[in-house]
Amino acid sequence: MSLEVPKKLEREINRLVKNYPEKRSASLMVLHALQEEFGYISTEAEEWAAARLELKSINIHELVTFYPMLRQQDPGRTVVRVCRTLSCALAGSAKLHGHICKRLGLDADAPGLQRTKDGKYGVEYAECLASCGTGPVMMCNDDFYENVSNDGADEILKKYDE
């Protein structure tokens, strides 16, 4: 089974590849683009990227398994990432994470990304999101939220509910 890549994305990827003297360099950017389109990077997507960049599939697989932001399975439509590193932890990120998990009916103590059954949300801890002065912070997909209280989290999640 091979991957169907929309023409628009293909053009975008062609543009990205041209930014680098060596095709392999574009790996990460291509993977980002593919993930944006498909939600995660499937085996087919890995193989497609490898073929596009004239690499072996393992070269791409090495990257996908290394970077936590690249997903091998569907992480859910909205990925909620709560920063767990020191400053945010001091500001109460564990409480925030617990609250979000409770609201979405997930196990807060389970390791790794937890996905709701309906596939709407995936919740996970993230390492430092670099806004330590305004903890606790979290990201919902590409959107960034600071000073998130439990109530604030409810408000934010409402936006992504539909």
């Binding site: 690499l55 072996k56 599939s57 393992i58 697989h61 090495e62 398994t65 936590p68």
Partner: peptide, 20 residues
């Protein structure tokens, strides 16, 4: 170039591409 390392840190492991 058939082998690589998958995962990260202490969980690193040698692997070939799944299915290849």
């Amino acid at each position: 170039d058939a082998l690589g390392i998958v995962n990260r840190g202490s969980y690193n492991a040698i692997s070939s591409y799944p299915g290849q």
